[in-house]
């Protein structure tokens, strides 16, 4: 069996669990618990270990998706998950600018541990308060368009949109692969 493992990470409420649930063909293994911290203002449930989803696309080929918890107190899970990953997507909610720096912190955590392909998925782009992806990239510290990761808009609730994002990540991995 050949398996590619993708990690979906990002701040609380960026849409990581939804992203995986939308595209997984199996019922997602989730580890949701009722939120009691400031997360509760955003949503009722929060991931405390990881979400797991799968897409089998051949008899011997499958894509595994792992979603991380958003809060940094679970950074030991970030660590465990990223070490097994082939690539990752950083989800960022376009309408919550105060989280951009935190998103960048997650990315640098991942990048320090593993040098693997990544893309940035921007969610909630339809919100009236949404920032332009270009500006989000700058706010996240990706100043140079030449060196920054691919950025793609994602609607985590739509299968087509999530599939597009994964395509972008896979294609980015193909470019990064030593041929």
């Amino acid at each position: 069996m050949e398996i590619m493992r993708l990690v979906v990470t990002g701040p609380v409420g960026a849409g990581k669990s939804t992203f995986i649930r939308t595209v997984s063909e199996i019922e997602v293994v989730d580890t949701d618990r009722s939120a009691t911290d400031e997360t509760a203002e955003l949503k009722k449930k929060t991931t405390v270990a990881f979400d797991f989803g799968r897409l089998q696309f051949g008899p011997e080929t499958a894509l595994h998706l792992y979603g991380t918890p958003g809060q940094s107190r679970f950074d030991f899970m970030w660590d465990i998950l990223i070490r097994q990953a082939h690539a990752y997507v950083l989800l960022v909610a376009a309408h919550r600018p105060h989280e951009f720096r935190y998103a960048r912190r997650i990315a640098s955590f991942m990048n320090q541990r593993r040098n693997i392909p990544m893309i940035m998925g921007v969610t909630h782009v339809d919100s009236p308060e949404a920032w332009d992806p270009e500006n989000i990239a700058i706010a996240l510290g990706y100043l140079d368009p030449q060196t920054r990761p691919p950025i793609i808009n994602v609607n985590a609730n739509e299968e087509a949109s999530v599939a597009q994002a994964i395509i972008a990540l896979v294609q980015h991995s193909m470019q990064s692969c030593p041929t």
Partner: peptide, 17 residues
């Protein structure tokens, strides 16, 4: 993962996108 794996994955996903 192999390049052929990635190519197959992309064409599979394109069916969903």
């Amino acid at each position: 993962v192999s390049q052929s794996f990635l190519q197959n994955l992309v064409s599979f996903l394109k069916g969903k996108a």
